[in-house]
Nucleic acid binder design. Structure first.
Lengths: 112, 112
DNA sequence: TTTATATACATAGCTTTCTTATGTATGTAA
DNA sequence: TTACATACATAAGAAAGCTATGTATATAAA
């Protein structure tokens, strides 16, 4: 994988979508889930994930509860009502952007 | 459109792909081409485009020739040999990332 | 027993890459 | 003479990643 500039801008959407599907998840679980779904192709780094979670929480999109499991701390995140409302528009934006991008990247050479 | 955080990381690939298809283009032409292809959905700002072109040139991916057309300066960019070699791997990366992203974003809710 | 790996959080410092705003200059239409 | 289109460029700032580091627990391996 190395670095992944393409990830920029999509991390928030990934987080919100996963939390829409799974009700509640903790940070480490999100990294593992993404790794699993993408067969290791996309790896979320902690330095990107945790600040992104904190930001979404500060914006009122996510709320948390902390639990102790096996004497380790787990901070569960779930969508707030506002967060839930935001998900579908974020997904629409992402899908629209992907389609436009593919329109450019799979362009046939101009017939001159 | 407003701002476009999703654009991050894809601008280089867009530029290289357009130059693969069109042999040579100048900056303003690239902005218009992208606007045209995406029906105005994606707008490249000059503050993003020109530094990106300069960077690709500095990295040896692009080379330029300047012409005067209608007493206005035009700086044409085209792929160097190195740039040409780089295009397909950039495109592969972008397509792979898009596929992984769609795998995450269109995930069905986990059956629990 | 001490090292490595996995789990689980967090943050500081850095870099890349974008946005906004501004500037120069020419040509044309209102 | 004002506005808009064409055509370049850059400075300042913000956003959002990455790397590295730190804390802490549990377990497996050497």
């Amino acid at each position: 994988m190395s670095t992944n500039p393409l990830l920029k801008g999509t991390l928030q959407t990934i987080i919100l979508k996963l939390l829409e599907d799974n009700t509640q998840m903790y940070g480490y679980e999100i990294t593992q889930k993404v790794k699993e779904i993408t067969a290791g192709e996309i790896k979320l780094t902690e330095g990107a994930l945790y600040p992104a979670l904190h930001k979404l929480e500060a914006e009122g999109m996510l709320e948390t509860t902390t639990e102790i499991v096996d004497s380790r701390v787990r901070k569960y995140y779930r969508l707030t009502e506002q967060g839930g409302n935001e998900v579908s528009s974020k997904l629409d934006e992402a899908q629209a952007f992907i389609e436009q991008l593919q329109a450019i990247l799979s362009l046939k050479p101009a017939l001159k």
